[in-house]
Design a protein around this nucleic acid. Structure first.
Lengths: 240, 240
DNA sequence: CGGTTCTTTGACATTAGTCAATACCAGTGG
DNA sequence: CCACTGGTATTGACTAATGTCAAAGAACCG
């Protein structure tokens, strides 16, 4: 099947899908050209600015979306307003909880994002017909579960210093998946406040730990949002 | 399909499966009788005592298992020995990470457990043939993901008192899913040390918070492992 | 019973949070 | 181009929460 797909000429594919990342590593990679054609009739690309809410907690889900560019943060809040970021999604992740009547998280654009919005009935009917598609969705769910459990260790057992190092390492390896030891430079997709909500820390503690990493030469702060890591391995050992 | 299954006489089913919880709410409920017959040829029931390791972290997975009775805890450890419980599994959950070459957690019997062990090839070949089975596995993965994210809020943003109340509430609602407000009594499946590892707290802090809940009349400690909750709603409000 | 393990409790140390002041950067309009 | 302004981030002083170490008390198991 893989070879069949490879041999198909791009012109069989919807124009918008031809250069789309979701078609390769995302869920659309599980679809045959005619299925993609069909699905693409229902989808539309949209842009959302930083801070825009994409999915509200406890609201009916009326659409899913492929993340094409940017970072989406998933958060939960306690009644008194305490907030926790429970996940980050990057291209080409599928956004939206499959097979649930309502969302259990709030999804918000952490940076400017491009999405390919898929109406709920369109995706769900295709899921019923396509076992490979459902398989990809499951593989993403399992990967997210692995990531959530990794993060539980960070939240439950690491010190503030280790938490901040772990966060920077996570972002660095997502943005720029080069080999260990190499220098990397990147923009943080989250404000200090979001980082705190991700790590279960206050903004002040995050700031202090970043300053400490800077003082120790592990990172360089080009500007608030722009960081350089001269040696990823040195950051790695700070992760606990 | 559901009605078809209901009409089948129990004698069509493997003897061991007839009274098995996994056949109803667990993954086996997705199988037709002849599939269940076939699968049951490869499975075997085993008992494991409290504290026994069921799956080792970073080891090849050679089998899956349905939890039939008891509680399994999933843990991860940092190099220096700090430990975090990242999940609990109850009957009729499927134990084992599907589609991964190695486990990413350690699974250990938190109490005495009964398992129905399924060799890896047996389950994976059946997963390939049965979309309904894969669907059930996905639904479990999604549920575990929801639970993991709920727990991230507890780990990241709740106080020690709220964490302990949340843990007791979690156990109470799993063991005895009666309505709110009712009295419940149950055995804790975890030691204080495990509870600490689940909540990201030390054993002493767990103990102090339990003592405090007892002093406030929210819970009664019959013995170390045996707890009575006179009013679940009063416990609920302590969860933050 | 008597030993072993687990749990509780207390005194103290450490970490992270809170509150408050200052510094920084980014955008706006003079 | 520069000064102003609002939001964001950093830093400092102090407080509160949780962890650490140590000892005593309960439960469990022959």
């Amino acid at each position: 099947m893989q070879t069949v797909r490879k041999d198909i000429h791009n012109s069989d594919l919807p124009v918008l899908c031809q250069s789309c990342e979701a078609r390769h590593q995302g869920i659309c990679g599980a679809l045959r050209p005619e299925q993609l054609q069909q699905l693409s009739k229902a989808t539309r690309r949209v842009h959302r600015g930083e801070g825009e809410e994409l999915i509200a907690d406890a609201m009916p889900i009326d659409s899913y979306a492929n993340v094409l560019r940017g970072v989406v943060k998933l958060t939960k809040v306690l009644e008194d307003g305490r907030q926790q970021v429970v996940g980050l999604q990057f291209a080409p992740d599928l956004l939206g909880r499959p097979f649930a009547s309502e969302s259990r998280v709030t999804a918000e654009a952490a940076s400017d994002v491009d999405l390919c919005v898929i109406p709920r009935p369109a995706l769900e009917s295709m899921l019923k017909d396509s076992a490979p598609l459902e398989h990809r969705v499951m593989m993403q769910a399992l990967r997210e579960l692995d990531e959530a459990r990794d993060w539980m260790v960070t939240l439950g057992r690491k010190t503030a210093a280790e938490k901040v190092a772990s966060f920077l390492y996570l972002i660095a390896s997502h943005i720029d998946p080069t080999e260990e030891g190499a220098a990397t430079t990147f923009d943080l997709p989250l404000s200090r406040s979001d980082i705190g909500d991700f790590l279960g820390l206050t903004i002040e503690t995050v700031s202090r730990q970043i300053s400490k990493l800077k003082a120790d030469g592990v990172i360089e702060i080009v500007s608030y949002r722009h960081v350089t890591v001269p040696d990823l391995a040195r950051l790695r050992v700070r992760c606990g």
